[in-house]
Computed example of a mutant assay.
Amino acid sequence: MDLALLRTFVTVHRAGSFTRAAALLGLSQPAVTSQIRTLERQLGRPLFLRQARGVTPTTIGDELAHKAAPHLDALMEITEAGLDEESLVRTLHLAGPPEFIAERALPALTALSDQEGRSHALRVSFGTADEVLEGLSAGHHDLAITTARPRGPLLTATPLCDEEHVLVAGERWAARLGPGRPRRRAALPLEDLPVVEVHESLPFVSRYWAAVFDGRPVASGAVIVPDLRAVLSCVVSGAGLAVLPRYLCASALERGDIVALLDPAVPPLRTYFLAVRSGTLAMPHIARAHEWLLRAAADWA
Score class of each variant (00 low, 15 high):
Asp2Thr: 06
Leu3Trp: 12
Ala4His: 11
Leu6Arg: 06
Phe9Cys: 03
Thr11Gln: 12
Thr11Lys: 03
Val12His: 09
Gly16Asn: 08
Gly16Val: 09
Ser17Phe: 07
Arg20Val: 08
Leu24Ile: 02
Gly26Phe: 07
Gly26Arg: 01
Leu27Glu: 03
Leu27Cys: 03
Ser28Met: 01
Gln29Thr: 14
Gln29Glu: 15
Pro30Val: 02
Ile36Glu: 01
Glu40Thr: 04
Glu40Gly: 04
Gln42Leu: 11
Gly44Phe: 11
Gly54Lys: 04
Pro57Phe: 04
Ile60Lys: 09
Gly61Thr: 10
Asp62Asn: 12
Leu64Val: 00
Ala65Tyr: 05
Lys67Asp: 15
Ala69Tyr: 02
Pro70Phe: 04
Leu72Pro: 02
Leu72Gly: 05
Ala74Ile: 11
Leu75Met: 14
Ile78Thr: 11
Glu80Arg: 14
Glu80Gly: 04
Gly82Trp: 00
Gly82Cys: 07
Gly82Lys: 00
Leu83Asp: 01
Glu85Asn: 11
Ser87Thr: 11
Leu88Ala: 14
Val89Lys: 13
Glu99Trp: 09
Phe100Lys: 11
Ala102Asp: 09
Glu103Pro: 08
Leu106Glu: 06
Leu106Asn: 11
Leu109Asn: 03
Phe126Lys: 09
Gly135Trp: 08
His141Asn: 15
Leu143Glu: 03
Thr146Leu: 05
Thr147Arg: 12
Arg149Pro: 10
Arg149Met: 13
Pro153Arg: 09
Thr158Asp: 12
Pro159Ser: 12
Asp162Ser: 13
His165Tyr: 08
Gly170Asn: 15
Gly170Pro: 09
Trp173Val: 03
Leu177Asp: 01
Gly178Arg: 01
Gly180Gln: 00
Ala187His: 02
Leu188Thr: 13
Pro189Ala: 00
Leu190Asn: 00
Leu193Lys: 00
Leu193Trp: 07
Glu200Trp: 05
Phe204Leu: 15
Tyr208Pro: 00
Ala211Pro: 07
Ala211Gln: 05
Val212Phe: 04
Asp214Ser: 14
Gly215Arg: 01
Arg216Val: 14
Val218Gln: 15
Ala219Thr: 14
Ala222Ser: 14
Asp227Ser: 05
Asp227Val: 10
Leu228Lys: 05
Ala230Ser: 15
Gly238Pro: 08
Gly238Tyr: 13
Val243Gly: 01
Arg246Met: 10
Leu248Asp: 03
Ala252His: 13
Leu261Gln: 00
Leu262Cys: 13
Ala265Glu: 14
Tyr272Gln: 13
Tyr272Lys: 09
Ala275Ser: 03
Val276Gly: 05
Ser278His: 12
Leu281Trp: 04
Met283His: 10
His285Lys: 06
Ala287His: 13
Arg288Met: 12
Arg288His: 12
His290Val: 03
Glu291Ile: 04
